[in-house]
């Protein structure tokens, strides 16, 4: 395997020495491009009190390409499907090499606080969300209590 780019080493060191509040990212021992991530749900959202596990992978052409990120914990959210795939512009067309692992994870945390049912990935959830937002938020809260329990 090719040597790990200096930027990835620097990012990893900083994630450990100066972690983002409410977010952890730990590189796997076998593959330093693979991170086990946890994100705490924002306090003013139905995901509050929940701790969500994600996996993050830095492709070979990172940072020219966005990291690949996926939720492992089940979550009821209009922009996250049941496979954990995330619909977020900076992970797709709006990626920029000036963004970093920490900024991407912060964007995902912000997405939890600001669901966008008009740009859905999980269509059924988005429809529920638009039809009856109160009920949808209630379901999101139930799922958080059921699946996203802090370990």
């Amino acid at each position: 395997m090719a040597a790990l780019p200096k930027r990835i080493i620097k990012e990893t060191e900083r994630l450990v020495s100066d972690p983002v509040p409410g977010i952890t990212a730990i590189p796997s021992e076998e593959n330093l491009r693979y991170f086990e991530v946890t994100i705490e749900g924002p306090s003013s959202s139905p995901y509050a009190e929940g701790e969500f596990k994600l996996e993050l992978y830095l492709p070979d052409d990172y940072p020219m390409c966005a990291p690949k990120v996926r939720f492992l914990t089940r979550i009821y959210h209009p922009n996250i499907d049941k496979l954990g795939r995330i619909c977020l512009d900076v992970l797709k067309d709006n990626w920029s090499p000036a963004l970093q692992i920490r900024t991407v994870l912060l964007s995902i945390q912000a997405l939890l606080g600001a669901p966008n049912p008009d740009d859905p990935l999980a269509n059924d959830v988005a429809e529920d969300w638009k039809k009856d937002e109160k009920r949808a938020i209630e379901v999101a809260r139930e799922w958080t209590a059921k699946y996203a329990v802090k370990s």
Binding site: P5, K6, A98
Partner: peptide, 13 residues
């Protein structure tokens, strides 16, 4: 500007 602390936003060096 600020050449002592300026870094490349891509490689961060």
């Amino acid at each position: 500007p600020n050449k002592e602390t300026a870094d490349c936003p891509i490689c961060t060096n």
